[in-house]
Nucleic acid binder design. Structure first.
Length: 279
DNA sequence: CAAGAATCCTGTCAGC
DNA sequence: TGCTGACAGGATTCTT
């Protein structure tokens, strides 16, 4: 799915165009995605003023007047398509459409339907069941080596798996965990409880730089992801290990010195790493 | 408890 | 050209 950089990129695109607008209508094309939509959502959104946007982990929060926030999560295959209002041509897997009085049309497309939409009081953004347990924002000051060390202490699971846990740090996904561990020179197989200390001190800036670079590139774009305005992100061209099994990493000369980037599996998910430079 | 597997769902791609 | 199986950016829920 969209991981933090993609969600951030999408959110910025939405904010630039929709902030200050007013919702003319909202239309649901089914009753649920991962969970049922809140009852009466269409009517509750009609006429609402869009005050602004924020991101928490991989969640987008659209702040509305009346003290409400619309929560959007893109799951694995979700996309938000933003363009001029048009006759309601059928777009496959478009489950939710929102139109503004200013002439914008926002479509939520999600073939696999792992995404989520909810409406909550803005004051509940820290207590909502999907948001309450999220760990620190990796690009803010609250994400520190000391805090990360505490979160990893005593955990026997591989660091790769631990970093995918949104309670440890919010927003990393399968691509950027591999990329950040490569950047930090830490093996994904290393038990999480051995990371606190010097390795955590390397990991924090590695995570930050990985995400910052990706946001600067406009997020990665895979099959199921495009930015709201339809442009593609370019960070996928900058992946150093993800999807590069068998290739030499940028630090290594290749065989026989280094066997190249390896693919392995943690908890059923692909991991890519260099066994020579990541320890 | 913690860790790993199963699960939700559809699309794509490689191999035969 | 089909068909089949593996795999895909997530995260909860179920088992062990």
């Amino acid at each position: 799915m969209p991981e933090l950089p993609e969600v951030e990129t999408v959110m910025r695109g939405l904010a630039a165009r929709l902030q200050g607008g007013r919702i003319a209508r909202a239309v649901l094309h089914r009753a649920d995605l991962r969970w049922p939509f809140p009852p009466g959502l269409e009517a509750q959104l009609r006429g609402a003023r869009i005050l602004g946007f924020r991101r928490r982990g991989k969640y987008i929060l659209m702040r509305l007047d009346g003290g409400r926030s619309l929560l959007l999560h893109l799951g694995m295959s979700g996309r938000l398509l933003l363009g001029p209002a048009r006759p309601n041509l059928p777009t496959p897997h478009e489950h939710f459409v929102l139109e503004t009085e200013q002439g914008w049309r926002l479509g939520f497309v999600d073939p696999r339907r792992f995404g989520a939409i909810d409406l909550l009081p803005t004051v509940a953004e820290t207590t909502h069941r999907l948001l309450a347990a999220l760990g620190p924002e990796p690009l803010e000051d609250q994400f520190t080596a000391a805090g990360l060390s505490a979160a990893l202490a005593g955990r026997r699971t591989p660091i790769k798996t631990a970093l995918l846990d949104q309670r440890v740090v919010a927003g990393l996904g399968n691509i950027y965990v591999s990329e950040a561990l490569f950047r930090a020179g830490i093996s994904p197989n290393r038990s999480a409880h051995t990371v606190p200390g010097a390795r955590a001190a390397r990991l924090v800036p590695a995570v930050r730089e990985t995400l910052t670079d990706a946001i600067a590139a406009g997020g990665s774009s895979l099959r199921d992801y495009v930015q709201p305005d339809g442009e593609l992100g370019y960070f996928q061209h900058a992946w150093k290990v993800y999807g590069r099994a068998g290739l030499a990493c940028e630090h290594c000369p290749g065989p026989p010195v280094c066997p190249g980037i390896r693919r392995t599996v943690h908890s059923g998910r692909s991991t890519f790493y260099c066994s020579r430079t990541q320890r």
